[in-house]
C-alpha cells in the first residue's frame, strides 16, 4: 500500500512539475523576453505584391537556385524543414562520390589562365573520342548508371529513362535474349536496371558518341513534353562523366589545373538545413562570379558592383565562438535578403 501511494505520488508530482510547470516556465520566459527567438527566429520581408510576409527563418536553410543568389550547401532533405536529415552516406558509398561528381561536372572550371578551353568542352571531346564511352561508364559506374535508370521511378512505374530502356529492349529483342542467357536461374522479366550494361552497349553501337538525354520537345499544339533522345554531349554528360574523365590517366595534365571547390559547397549537412556557407565558398569563383555577373546592369560598372557585393558579403561574415573556432561563415538567407535590398537584378525573373 505504501508502495502504491509512493508510486502514484511520484508519478503525479514529478509529472506536474517536470511536464507542466517546467515547460510552462520556459515558455513564459521565452514568450516574454525572447519573443522572436522562441518562435523560430522568423524573418519577414516585402512580397512581390508589396505586403509583409514571412520569408523563412534565419536559422533554417532554404533553397536558392537562381543565378542572382548565393547558393546553400546541398541538402539531403531537399531543404524540407518538416523532415530534416542528412544523407547518412559513408565515405565508402559510391552514391556520395557520384553526387559530388555530378554536382561538380557542369560547374567545374580551370584555374584562371591555365587552359584555353573549359573542362566541359574537354569532357565532351573526350566523350565523343571513344564511341562506346557510355558502355564503359555503365560497366564501371554501375551505381550511378542504376540511379540514372531509376530516376523518377516509383513502385512499379519507371521514369523517362527507365521507360526508354524498356522501349529500346522492345525494338532490340537480342537484349532480352542476351540477358536471359546470362541469367538462366531467373524466370521473371528483366527490369530496366537489369538491362543497363546491355542497353548502353547496344545504344553506343546504334548512336556512337551520342548520349540518351532528357530533352524538351515542343508539340504541334504548343505544349512541351519531356522525352529521351540521342543527342550530342550535354550538361548531363558533364555531370555523369566528370569523375570518369578525371580518372582517365590521359587527362592528367588537364585535371591538375582544375580550380578546387570549397568542401562545404558539395557536402550535405547533418540536418540538411545548415543556414551557413563558408566565406571562402561565397567568395569563390563558383559563387561570387555568378552572382556579381547576374547583378551587373548592362553597361554598368562591373568592378564597382563586384567591390560592393564583396563588401556586403564580408559585412555578413562572422567566425564562430567569437573567432575562436573554425573559419568565417555567412548566413545565407540574411545575405541574400540584403543582396536583394541593395542590388537590383536587371532581367525580370
Amino acid at each position: 500500500m505504501k508502495h502504491v501511494r509512493a508510486n502514484l505520488l511520484l508519478l503525479g508530482l514529478s509529472f506536474a512539475i517536470c511536464c507542466i510547470a517546467y515547460p510552462s516556465l520556459l515558455w513564459a520566459i521565452g514568450q516574454t523576453i525572447f519573443l522572436t527567438k522562441s518562435n523560430g527566429s522568423l524573418m519577414t520581408g516585402m512580397g512581390q505584391d508589396g505586403t509583409q510576409r514571412t520569408i523563412g527563418s534565419r536559422q533554417i536553410a532554404q533553397s536558392f537556385t537562381g543565378d542572382e543568389y548565393f547558393w546553400p550547401r546541398p541538402s539531403a532533405a531537399s531543404y524540407n524543414a518538416t523532415a530534416a536529415g542528412g544523407s547518412n552516406w559513408g565515405a565508402n558509398n559510391p552514391k556520395l562520390r557520384d553526387r559530388v561528381a555530378q554536382q561538380l561536372g557542369p560547374i567545374i572550371r580551370y584555374k584562371p589562365g591555365t587552359q584555353p578551353r573549359t573542362p566541359q568542352q574537354d569532357i565532351e571531346d573526350w566523350f565523343a573520342a571513344k564511341p562506346d564511352r557510355a558502355a564503359d561508364w555503365a560497366r564501371e559506374y554501375s551505381v550511378a548508371a542504376a540511379n540514372w535508370a531509376m530516376a523518377d521511378s516509383t513502385n512499379n512505374t519507371y521514369g523517362l529513362q527507365g521507360n526508354f530502356i524498356l522501349a529500346w529492349a522492345e525494338h532490340h529483342p537480342d537484349l532480352i535474349e542476351q540477358w536471359k542467357n546470362a541469367n538462366r536461374a531467373k524466370t521473371d522479366h528483366p527490369k530496366p536496371v537489369d538491362l543497363i550494361p546491355l542497353f548502353f552497349v547496344s545504344f553506343a553501337r546504334a548512336h556512337p558518341g551520342k548520349w540518351p538525354a532528357v530533352v524538351e520537345v515542343k508539340q504541334t499544339d504548343g505544349s512541351v513534353i519531356k522525352q529521351v533522345e540521342p543527342v550530342a554531349p550535354d550538361a548531363s554528360v558533364h555531370a555523369n562523366f566528370f569523375d570518369m574523365w578525371l580518372q582517365d590517366p590521359a587527362n592528367r595534365p588537364k585535371t591538375a589545373d582544375l580550380e578546387p571547390v570549397p568542401a562545404d559547397m558539395v557536402t550535405a549537412s547533418g540536418s540538411g538545413l545548415d543556414p551557413h556557407i563558408t566565406l571562402r565558398n561565397a567568395m569563390s569563383v563558383y559563387q561570387f562570379d555568378r552572382v556579381a555577373a547576374k547583378r551587373t546592369l548592362p553597361g554598368g560598372n562591373a568592378a564597382k558592383i563586384r567591390n560592393d557585393i564583396e563588401k556586403l558579403v564580408r559585412k555578413h561574415s562572422f567566425t564562430p565562438l567569437c573567432g575562436l573556432v573554425g573559419e568565417p561563415l555567412v548566413n545565407l538567407l540574411e545575405l541574400n535578403v540584403d543582396l536583394d535590398r541593395h542590388f537590383t537584378v536587371p532581367s525580370v525573373r
Binding site: R73, G86, S87, N88, W89, A91, L96, A263, D264, T267, A268, S269, G270, S271, D274, P275, H276, I277, T278, P320, L321, L324, V325, G326, L329
Partner: peptide, 9 residues
C-alpha cells in the same frame, strides 16, 4: 564535412 554543420567549427 559530409553530415557536419558549419556553425560549430
Amino acid at each position: 564535412l559530409e553530415g557536419k554543420e558549419l556553425r560549430f567549427g
